[in-house]
Structures are given as C-alpha cells and as structure tokens.
Amino acid sequence: MKQLRPNDMMLQVSMRLITLIIFAFSFYLFLAGHNNPGGGFIGGLMTASAILVLYLAFDMKTITKAIPFNFTTMIGVGLLFAVFTGIASMLYGFPFLTQFFDYFQFPVFGEVELTTALPFDLGVYLVVVGAALTIILAIAEDDK
C-alpha cells in the first residue's frame, strides 16, 4: 500500500540543479587531488552523495533507470584500474606502484602535469562511489 506522495516538486527541481553543482565540484576535487586537498576518496564520496540526493528527491525506480550502472561492478572495475596502474610500472621493470609524471602542452589548458597517480585515483574514485552506494542501497532496497 502506498501512502499519498507529498508534493515534492520544489525538492525535485532544486535537486536537479544542486546535483549538477555537486557533481562538478566532486570532479574538481578528484582532479585537484594530486597537489591540493582532494583526491579520489573525497571526490568519490561527494559523487556518491550527489547520487544519493537524487535518490532522496526522486524514487528508486526513476534513478535506477536514469543511472543504469551496476554499482557493484563499479567496485570491481575501480579495483582493477588501481591495481593495473601499479602493475604498469612493473612491466617496465620498476617496482610495483612506481609513479611517473611529466608536463605536457595542451591547446586550451596550457601546460598540464599528467601523472600515473591519476588513473590510480580514478580507481579509488570508482571504488568509493560503488561501495558507498552499494551499501546504502542494500539497506534502502530491503525496506520494501
């Protein structure tokens, strides 16, 4: 039996906007992580919270349709990303997890530092988003 849904139009409209902002900020945090505060973990948590806010504002079905990821798979992919970054240095004869960086010129951004820590952080990011949402959804889905 479903209770009468409250009119949460305000919430839904504002959340669409706010989520985008949170997403953008989490992406910034994720990229900033190398030399500034931020990184995969914090970025991932923030992204997870953005998606969670969507789940709060809308219902489960809508969001599951809108974000058709399997979050558990995401954990696996993230772990693989992280570990293969470490292995990549092994292939060139360096110890596991040796990191490299260099500076590159890009047309719009100018000089950018690219590091092998970034794909590693991407792995962490995916794991955190996946794990946080898996756990929260595991409890939420149980309630029906």
């Binding site: 558990t72 798979t73 954990i75 696996g76 992919v77 772990l79 693989l80 570990v83 470490g86 596991f96």
Partner: peptide, 13 residues
C-alpha cells in the same frame, strides 16, 4: 598479494 587482488576484483564483476 596482487594476484588474489586482481582475481577478487574480476570475480566481483
């Protein structure tokens, strides 16, 4: 350490 790690991650998928 990494072999079980990779296999564990693959098996999640």
């Amino acid at each position: 350490i990494i072999i079980p790690f990779i296999i564990g991650a693959v098996l999640i998928i």
